[in-house]
Lab assay of single mutants.
Amino acid sequence: DHWHVHIDGERIRLDGASEEFIRTLEELIRRGTDARELKEIIKEYLR
């Protein structure tokens, strides 16, 4: 599956992301997590 998110107007691909990770991201977004912080979390995950 190819997922991607838009954060700060930037399109970030989440290739190979699990549904669990996507749900976690959605939860963080709902909580109002800062965009820079979200991008860091995604970069760490994709390593």
Rank of each mutant, 00 (worst) to 15 (best):
A17H: 03
D1T: 12
K43E: 13
V5A: 07
L14S: 01
E10H: 09
E44N: 11
E20A: 14
H2L: 06
R31E: 08
I41A: 07
A17V: 13
D8T: 03
D8N: 09
R30K: 10
I7Y: 02
L14E: 00
V5Y: 04
H6I: 15
I42N: 00
F21I: 05
F21A: 01
A35S: 13
H4D: 08
L14M: 05
A17R: 02
E26T: 13
R31C: 05
L46N: 06
R23D: 04
L46M: 13
D8H: 04
G32Y: 04
R31V: 09
I42W: 03
E19A: 15
L38C: 01
D8R: 03
L25T: 01
E20R: 08
L25Y: 02
I41R: 10
K43C: 08
L46V: 08
I29L: 09
D34K: 10
D1W: 05
H6T: 14
R36N: 14
E19N: 11
L38E: 00
E44M: 13
R30S: 10
D34E: 09
H4G: 05
D8P: 01
K39P: 01
E20F: 13
R13C: 11
L38V: 07
L14C: 01
K43T: 12
E40F: 12
A17C: 02
I7P: 01
E37S: 13
L28W: 07
I41Y: 12
D15V: 13
L14A: 03
V5W: 04
R13T: 15
G16H: 10
E26V: 11
K39R: 12
L38N: 00
R36T: 13
R47G: 10
H6E: 15
T24R: 15
G9E: 05
E37H: 11
L28F: 08
I22W: 05
E10P: 01
D8M: 04
D15G: 06
Y45M: 04
D34V: 07
G32K: 05
I12D: 01
L14I: 14
L38A: 01
L25A: 01
R11Q: 15
G16R: 09
V5K: 03
E10N: 05
S18M: 04
Y45F: 09
W3E: 05
E19W: 15
R30V: 07
R11A: 05
D1I: 10
R30M: 10
V5Q: 02
I22D: 00
F21D: 01
E27G: 08
D1S: 12
H2M: 09
R36G: 12
A35H: 08
E10S: 04
E26P: 00
D8L: 04
E27Q: 10
E19C: 09
R11N: 15
V5H: 02
T33H: 07
R47Q: 14
I42K: 00
L25R: 00
E27W: 13
I12E: 01
L14D: 00
I22S: 02
E27M: 14
T33D: 03
K39A: 07
T24K: 14
L46S: 04
E37R: 13
R31K: 11
S18H: 10
D1L: 14
E40T: 10
I12Q: 02
E19L: 15
D8W: 01
H4F: 10
R47N: 10
H4W: 12
K43F: 14
D8F: 02
E19D: 10
T24N: 11
D34Y: 04
G9N: 07
D1Y: 09
R30F: 08
H4C: 09
E19V: 14
I22Y: 07
R13A: 15
V5I: 14
G16W: 09
I12L: 08
E20C: 05
Y45T: 03
R30Y: 09
L25F: 05
I7C: 02
G32L: 04
D15P: 12
H2E: 12
E27T: 13
D34A: 09
I7A: 02
R47M: 13
R23E: 06
L38M: 05
E40L: 14
E20V: 08
S18E: 05
